[in-house]
Amino acid sequence: MPKKMPKNNKKALGKERLIWMYTQMLRIREFEERVKRTFVEHPGVIRGHTHLADGAEASIVGALATRNENDLAMPSYRCHGYPIVLGTSVKKMMAEIYGRKDGLCQGFGGSMHLADPAHHFPGTSGIIGQAIAHATGAALTAQVKKTGQVIYCFFGDGASKQGAFYESLNMAAVWKLPIVYILENNQYQVYTRVELEDANAAAGDPLSRKAQAFSIPGVTVDGTDPLRVYDAVEKAVKRARAGLGPSLIESKFYRFSAHGNAITVPPVPTQFPEHEAIETYGRKAEYAAARARDPILLFRKKLKSKGVLSEPAAKQIEDSVRAELEQAVQFALASPFPSPEEATKYVYA
């Protein structure tokens, strides 16, 4: 299974790269499925709050497939998808979510705070919108130190109402920082439908219109199609790398899982509830329609019709992804807990 992104020499995405993209999408989906299943299969193993990226696979992979080796990805707390694509060990990721010593952050962070700077993933904030400023700061580093890097800043539709969003995009535009802002519009801000809280959505306009406030390019793309996301992000990355400053891309897709696992007080067990569309708003048809446009199914169909992916190849990828994540779960379950007295480590550098 190709883990490292194959080089892309031609203008069009080659077969190898397309298969790699499909594989990464599958790995994200399987990872999130295994996290979700853990609440049922191993109650109590995952503590606190966990947020999943199922539905976002095409958007994440399409965006990150455009990056150069040293470019950084900086998302918010819904952060499992990106490091999987960047090459982070899924075993360590799962162990972190299980609070184990072998976890990515040795059990200090958990689901919302994954960090793997060695794989171009400097860290995440659990507070909505705040990491937009951090990503902008990373872009400042790239500019001051002339590293040639572009920063991929991911955040949700909800975060685009935070002051950090407006302040950061304004400064990035004034300073022409090398950053691409990818607004993942998954239609729901926590439990609230986007048109109830967003002026653009309420007026029937795309959220990318916010770019006009900063006089930067703003486009909306179908986030269920990795190739469309790729095209839009590639254009924005080129612009950023050329020193022309930031762009805003609204990538529209549908979050398949609820915002997070149910907030319960121990010892009441927690697991993922029904999606808010059904649970809160009673929109069963909306949810079913979104599931019918599952980005993984759509992309598999496209690759098959293009002759890029054969049925046996698809089966082989599926099997190997399933085996990889089964190993990750077993690794995480077998990993010991950190020693309690380690809790005072890492307060200060």
Binding site: P117, G123, H134, G137, A138, T141, A164, S168
Partner: peptide, 12 residues
């Protein structure tokens, strides 16, 4: 943004 950008710049 001033303070948040400093955080991100310091991280990197």
């Amino acid at each position: 943004a001033e303070m948040g950008i400093a955080v991100g710049a310091a991280m990197t």
